[in-house]
């Protein structure tokens, strides 16, 4: 940004390592240096994110005809989204399910992160590794493991039946929205624990002591000091889970049953069996926009709340 001042500040330093005209050009301004450091990432981001995104946007204005596309631009797909109830309903359901999964994950993981941050003093690394241990197996296997746990002859049902608490297996465990929420909450746990752990770990312990000295009990101390200061971790954990789970595909496909399907499954079908790629592109874009909107609102609200309580 402030290229001028950076250059003048640099002029006194020894000759920069970059030689030749290009090297000197790159060294001249901080912005250029920053950009050149970023360039490999930027290039990959451009090829891997911006270009496909551009293709999606363009394609969403096309029309599928048999095996080909009618490339004259039209907003018919977006109109279609408004007209047919399935799209909106699945989108709403996905947002709802992934909010539930996010809330469950954050609530369950916060105590774990808190425990490791405040009550473990030796071998913290081992605890962190232990927490991430389930993530050493593939995502697919974790989903299958939940199928085994929740299934008709699964762990929960056989246990309850052996104990004589139920006569017939509980059928609502598997192939339901709750099965998907449970699985998502477990599968993404590490992504919640780590950011919350980091922000809890950073809290200055003397603040807590000060609060105690000034007469705050443990609950008030937690609400006034620990929680507000760990909010950045909670927010990033929430976003980190909410964004990818909304578009999740494999969990609802394997555990959701007819009532647990999410928008990701429908998008996959548009590119697969239904063979309407432009509609699939439209759905993807609408999904992205809704997630972005919700994330913005969420960040705005939490910022507002944080300012109020601190």
């Amino acid at each position: 940004m402030s290229g001028e001042s950076a250059t003048s500040a640099n002029s006194g330093s020894p000759k920069p390592p970059g030689t030749g005209r290009l090297g000197r050009l790159l060294q001249r301004s901080e912005a250029a240096r920053g950009l050149s450091l970023l360039s490999p990432t930027l290039l990959i981001m451009f090829i891997g994110v911006a270009v496909p995104f551009g293709i999606l946007i363009v394609m969403s204005f096309w029309t599928q005809i048999g095996f080909g596309f009618d490339t004259s631009p039209t907003v018919a797909n977006y109109e279609n989204f408004g007209e047919r109830p399935i799209y909106g309903a699945l989108l709403k359901r996905s947002l709802w399910m992934s909010s539930a999964a996010t809330a469950a994950t954050v609530l369950l993981c916060y105590p774990m992160a808190y425990f490791v941050a405040f009550h473990i003093h030796r071998n913290k690394m081992i605890w962190i590794v232990l927490i991430t241990l389930p993530f050493w197996t593939s995502y697919l296997l974790r989903v299958f493991a939940w199928k085994v746990v929740l299934g008709y002859e699964g762990v929960i049902n056989s246990a309850l039946m052996t104990l004589g608490l139920i006569k017939a297996p509980l059928e609502f465990l598997l192939y339901s929205q709750s099965a998907v929420v449970i699985t998502l909450a477990h599968a993404w746990a590490a992504f919640a624990i780590l950011p919350m752990y980091v922000s809890l770990e950073k809290i200055d312990k003397s603040l807590l002591e000060a609060a105690t000295d000034l007469g705050d009990g443990p609950v008030r101390r937690f609400l006034r000091i620990t929680l507000p200061l760990s909010m950045p971790g909670v927010i990033s954990a929430s976003l980190l889970i909410f964004i990818p789970t909304t578009g999740d595909y494999i969990t609802p496909a394997l555990l959701g049953g007819p009532d647990g399907a999410m928008i990701g499954n429908l998008i996959q079908k548009q590119f697969g069996a239904i063979n309407n790629w432009p509609m699939g592109a439209t759905l993807s874009i609408i999904l992205m926009l809704s997630i972005a909107a919700i994330a913005l609102v969420f960040m705005f609200v939490t910022n507002f709340v944080r300012k109020r309580i601190s």
């Binding site: 048999g66 399935i86 309903a89 699945l90 007819p258 399907a261 239904i274 063979n275 309407n276």
Partner: peptide, 19 residues
């Protein structure tokens, strides 16, 4: 035809999802 397949699959997906 391909149009039939697309129409049928789109409709069947809606029905499976409960519409």
């Amino acid at each position: 035809t391909q149009e039939w397949e697309t129409k049928m699959n789109a409709l069947f997906e809606e029905i499976k999802a409960g519409f």
